[in-house]
Design a protein around this nucleic acid. Structure first.
Lengths: 406, 406
DNA sequence: CGGATTTGTTCAAATTACGAACAATATCGC
DNA sequence: GCGATATTGTTCGTAATTTGAACAAATCCG
């Protein structure tokens, strides 16, 4: 029961029904490939003639392709259909505090080329550098491989419709427009997105290969900060001013450590990588001291994880406390949004066998129903580059998304 | 960019485009009445001929009606259209701990008859009693007034699709099916909904007369418990097991008062009417003691509010603390969902001039952005019967909602 | 009263969904 | 090897629907 937006609706025209059914077929092929025309007709309860005609259009515009025929117990062998992902490309950019990652990948998220370089703090200079690298990246490529656009992910608040970066504290950017500049420099369409939302979009549109992604879930990212991407009813939640999902600043303890946001005892001040590292070094997190402390020690979160793996008690204690706090935060996520699943991304997933039971224990303590207490937690290893996959997803999604109607 | 649900999609048929446009017209009439066919054609960028034909169908099925002609500076005077609400009725039922409210209203939410009686704890007996009262209510009515259905609101978790009440602790109901029984007894279709969600639906579909309701907001109910109804992208958030919106059990203080849910320091244990009343009597909230305490004293929340109005310091202190805690809770709502507005319902709104500034102060302290800190808080007086309006809304909404497609 | 202007209706043409017939393969029983 | 049967995919006529233009109705103005 969605309400129609009478300020900004899309009315149906002669071609709308066809467009809707074509998009449904494209998605059925995507999720059930290989699949035959006759199978599509059965699933959609539609005549095979209609399928032939719609499939012809999808073949024409290159969205799908015909593979070989498949075995059948009797009758004519069906001609199998597949979505064309290997020659539709996206350029994914992940801008982070110290380094920027640049990936060329196909529409399935499979990497073709990957490079990284030091982040240039000035937006204009970064755009110029990016444009140069992108041009070089595409130079030697086969012209047949169509690049559909650029997806750019930043740690911070983004207005996805205007493409403006509203506030990215880690980069020191405020109200910066990189989209238009990068579009002008490369001639490609550019989509900008906030990192946790991008990770959620990667899960939604590219999946993780094995299990089917639900239509309502939360993606928790644990990095220098703690953030979430929220998906409800098959759609991302951005919020009225693009600041939804800041579960990192849920207060856990009014007398807890000071947080970058100015408050005390935020989840992030307990569970971000900086906070974990700081705790390992014997200090509470502090927005003014911690960075200096870490630079002095030269340690990174991966060192703490390695030592925990090796069995060092101090490292294990630091990690356990982080997991406990994450569990408290996730209990709030579960009680307020009741997602069917929670994905967890970040270096901390390397210790999943240790971390998950601790989080689960807290969640069981706090969840309001027995079902909710067992909300599946799914780790996503950092090795799968979730942010870059998310950048790819924002380029690919418009091709597969439901057409806007009504 | 909504993802198509390939397990449960609706394909477009020959009539789909027509259905979509008819529904758009209905909603345009709803929100802009009085409006002429020519105006509709302009707003939809569609030929007037199409509008004539679609409007004829809507006139036929009684969704809208023609009023009188309107003045125009020159040319033929337009014939104005209106939605027909006054002779389409809904029966609204609000089952609460001690009393049950029964309202007959039209589709605009305007009450026609209202009665109340003591809640019968046994579900089957309550249904039988309700059916009897409903029959009596409808007996004397004009047969032309079409009753579209019954909306029933309960304090607790509800599976809106199956109509089962999963858990309503205040009523002591667990996994109870009142829908089928009430449908059988009355011959009317019955919709069951959770109270805070129903309040949100009332705002979304019936509005409050003056201002336009946004497509993303939160409705906070402060009663015996504290709950929220969440609306995102013009659609209600129910959660995977129908337990979304439990912001009442966000922990504010790990060493706070014990809550009914078993945890400590929940928002609800600070800010529900029971907690406020308990605090006024000089005690912390306690799930075991408070009810007895209140029965002994014979006081209700309205007494405390009246004394606060009269300027009694002890009452004011109790209310201020409640407002402070609600502010902390709302800051979490704002940082995690970033709604464009928050409606607040409950007896406490009687003291809005006192309560709002206290909540706002806390929100300003905690909100992550300046814009979010100014998220409008809109009080809804208990006198407008928000839950009963919500029950009406769940009956009326299917008539106006966007058709499900793709 | 005729021209100008706007609203609402009618109608023919262009498109499109739909369904039935048909062509193309393939297996199986004999 | 050959007809019977089953299944896939295509073609094509029919019915339904959008679309745009012409037309009728209503009103004001000079």
């Amino acid at each position: 029961m969605r309400k129609i937006n009478t300020r900004n609706f899309v009315r149906a025209t002669r071609g709308t029904a066809r467009e809707i059914n074509r998009r449904i077929i494209l998605n059925l092929v995507r999720e059930h490939q290989p699949i035959s025309r006759a199978d599509l007709a059965r699933r959609m309860r539609i005549g095979r003639g209609m399928v032939t005609s719609l499939v012809a259009e999808l073949l024409d515009d290159g969205s799908i392709y015909e593979g070989s025929t498949a075995e059948a117990p009797r009758g004519r062998k069906p001609m199998m259909l597949f979505v064309r992902t290997h020659d539709r490309l996206a350029i994914a950019v992940d801008v982070r505090f110290s380094r920027t990652y640049l990936m060329l990948s196909d529409f399935s998220g499979k990497p073709i080329a990957l490079e990284e370089f030091e982040t240039i703090p000035d937006p204009a200079a970064l755009v110029a550098g990016l444009a140069r690298r992108i041009q070089k990246l595409l130079k030697g490529r086969d012209a047949k491989l169509k690049v559909n656009g650029i997806g750019l992910v930043v740690p911070g608040m983004v207005d996805a419709t205007s493409g403006r970066i509203l506030n990215a504290p880690q980069l020191g950017w405020r109200d910066v427009d990189v989209r238009d500049a990068l579009e002008k420099a490369t001639g490609l369409s550019v989509h900008v997105e906030n990192a946790p939302i991008a990770c959620a979009l990667a899960q939604m549109w590219l999946g993780d290969g094995d299990t089917e992604t639900p239509r309502d879930f939360v993606y928790l990212t644990v990095g220098d900060g703690v953030g979430t991407g929220i998906v409800v009813n098959g759609e991302v939640v951005r919020g009225h001013d693009n600041t939804a999902g800041e579960f990192g600043h849920v207060p856990l303890n009014p007398r807890g450590p000071e947080c970058l946001c100015g408050a005390r005892g935020c989840l992030e001040a307990y569970a971000s990588n900086l906070a974990t590292l700081s705790r390992y070094l014997g200090h509470e997190f502090s927005p003014t001291e911690t960075r200096r402390l870490l630079q002095e020690s030269g340690l990174t979160i991966l060192d703490v994880i390695a030592r925990a793996h090796a069995g060092e008690q101090r490292a294990l204690d630091a990690i356990d406390e982080t997991a406990t706090r994450l569990g408290e935060g996730l209990a709030i996520v579960i009680n307020t949004l009741n997602p069917s699943r929670i994905y967890v991304g970040g270096e901390i997933t390397e210790l999943w066998d240790r971390v998950e039971p601790v989080m689960r224990h807290k969640i069981r303590e706090r969840a309001l129903t027995a079902k909710a207490a067992e909300t599946p937690l799914v780790p996503e290893p950092a090795s799968s580059y979730p942010r870059l996959r998310g950048a790819t997803a924002i380029v690919a999604a418009p091709v597969y998304a439901a057409p806007q109607v009504a």
